[in-house]
Design a protein around this nucleic acid. Structure first.
Lengths: 223, 223, 223, 223
DNA sequence: AATGAATGAGTTTTCATTCAT
DNA sequence: TATGAATGAAAACTCATTCAT
């Protein structure tokens, strides 16, 4: 647990703090613990016992509040998605010059993943499973990323201003911007072994961050 | 099992074919089955029973040949890595013009992932675990991807010829090329739900393939 | 629940009707629900949660009113016994000719079981358990069936009138009359499968009813 | 356990006799234990743990051999049905005079139930459940009781000989003969409380046995 | 009187692994 | 080399009951 990079960050464990009669706090603690546990161990490897223990709650409360492990996973996934969507929503780019706006957007995309390994971990597991929890979620399925729309608008402004090429569609561009950052963090551990360098160090991350911005901006420059 | 996209490909089930005394074939069948099982269910979700059953072998043979589940996973991972490294080794780009060479390289990178979902699945799980099996493997740790060297050479030739910019290093370039493809396949299931379109369809894959090549080539053009 | 033959009859669910401060109604609703639940699932299979839910009451009220599951079962059993004893008490046969009186009595016995599967279900479970709740009940233990006395009187009148044989005692006769009907309803489900016909259909029940009357009346005719 | 009337009879516990490598004996011991446990506690009240313990076997072997609790119940039920059907098959009545034959048949019916309380207990529970295990069993569903045919033949011979009435069909007659005995044993515990006498005593059983024969024979005499 | 949160002790079931043949 | 039986430990989930409000 402690050795894992994103366990501590994602959860706010409250061991030995058996709060009495505070359902709101209890279910919140359970969800925090679930994020940590699921992202660290995956769905199959996660233990309901451990989630309850981390949350300082009784195991049966997991079932009381969330029904079962699958439902808990779904709700946890919704939470993790909601968090990034909320952050994305806060981006206000319309006042910026298209180039600055696009750079901000790319940087945000990188930074969010850098700071939220639990998001990557949960996405990876959900993808291997075939996205059953996402499909079962009425919330998330409708949670289109505002980023696509932001990219679309920024792109349009940039094309108009003659600073961006018009050859890439917004969805593909979104996937490319995301992919440039995602792969680095998703595969950080294996890549660190293969390249024999610590890709999680602040210096390496800063270097990669700059590259991603430069690379993407270079790609969309007009010919 | 059968409904899973990469199960059938990776494994060669031999149910009801209890071959007597063919250790080579048996252990091969077990490894094939292990690739399918681990990539479909992850390490924690994989079942030794199921691996034996798929291989048409006795469960005890798993332990006989491979020691335990962890060792089997490590060997399976090595196998999967070796496979891609072997394919990468076969790439001969020096006869091609730098632009054609780079395009070939990007395309290979895309196509391999398109055809080997089990590779992505195993990498994702290994990364979540913190790459313990990779670290434990003397083989794989030394398996530097030949791609980095290929990129380096091709890049140098292109810079020399004035067709490539010299601002991106080979490692970062490798990560970007890989990331553009990897994210699409790694997150295919969730993205398909979010965008409400089937990203696994041949048409969508072809479109993405072209974008990846175009995008990367545009990025490395000289300013 | 809804599909079960005697659930609906015994209970009067009042979901979503959280009556405030009506102890009489609440405990009645709980008892109705208990009859349905215990007869459908047996003592071990019954769920206190479900009883409260069916009654539209809070689970804690079960404990408030009845102490625990065992006590609730005992009270439920008493209720079910009281119901049949009350109905038996209403039978007035002295004005009828012995033959008509005996037929009425047999028919009543059959009809009551036909209409009260919950009585059979609870008796069966209580018998398997060794009748602990019945023994614990001061009420029921004294609830001799008035039927035995009715049979005794009717039998005496019939012997006097020369229409009944005097070879069968009232208790054995009671057991025989009950058994002829009881077995049919108690084992209706398994017998329906074995004989591949629906013994719960009105036609089959009517046929059996006539047989039971004919058979018993034939048995007690004087030689 | 020990206080229950038919527990000891039905099972052959082999506690502390962990036989190694004898699958036949092990699964037999488990089935014996299952008969005892299910008939004593019903399906819901039965404990897989206890079944294994009684059989002196490992709990997981129950799942190894039988899959799950439901399957075990089904197989146990099949076993109990097969036992009575086998005994019924052994009845040879054709050499006897119809009256003697019918008396033998009635007596057999009574005696079997007297000696096999586990059969009654399992039938009662299966009936409350709606006979799901019986329906799921391809074996038992086809296990028509040979008794019906025996009754039919004996009845025909008796009618021919002028000693039996022809007004009752064989199926109804079967149900009546069974019911006269079944009710007595099925409800022995509650009836003993109600009538304040021990219906399980040999003397009471003998008295009831004679009554059942007399009553049934009287009923089918020609008018 | 009534409610919903909380819990201890199970209960079925699973699974990696070892044993005996 | 190969097999199926056997098992310890733990997994998800359940349930009667009590607590705090």
């Amino acid at each position: 647990m402690a050795s894992h990079p994103h366990a501590a960050r994602a959860a706010a464990p409250r061991k030995n703090t058996p709060q009495k009669r505070d359902p709101e706090a209890t279910s919140q603690a359970l969800l925090d613990a679930a994020v940590a546990e699921f992202s660290e161990h995956g769905f199959a490897g996660a233990r309901v016992d451990r989630i309850a223990a981390i949350a300082g709650a009784n195991k049966q409360l997991v079932y009381h509040y969330f029904g079962n492990k699958d439902e808990l996973y779904r709700i946890t996934l919704e939470r993790v998605y909601k968090q990034i969507r909320d952050r994305e929503q806060e981006l206000h780019l319309s006042d910026l010059h298209p180039v600055a706006a696009m750079e901000t957007l790319i940087a945000f995309s990188f930074d969010y993943l850098a700071e939220h390994p639990e998001f990557i971990a949960m996405l990876n597991d959900e993808n291997r499973l075939g996205a059953p929890h996402l499909k079962a979620s009425s919330h998330v399925a409708n949670m289109h990323s505002p980023l696509v729309k932001l990219i679309e608008e920024t792109l349009a402004r940039g094309i108009e201003a003659g600073v961006f090429s018009d050859r890439f569609g917004p969805v593909n561009l979104y996937l490319s911007i995301a992919g440039l950052s995602y792969f680095y963090f998703s595969n950080q551990n294996t890549l660190s072994v293969i390249f024999d360098r610590d890709l999680s160090s602040p210096a390496q991350i800063a270097r990669r961050r700059q590259h991603v911005i430069d690379f993407a901006m270079a790609a969309i420059k007009p010919e």
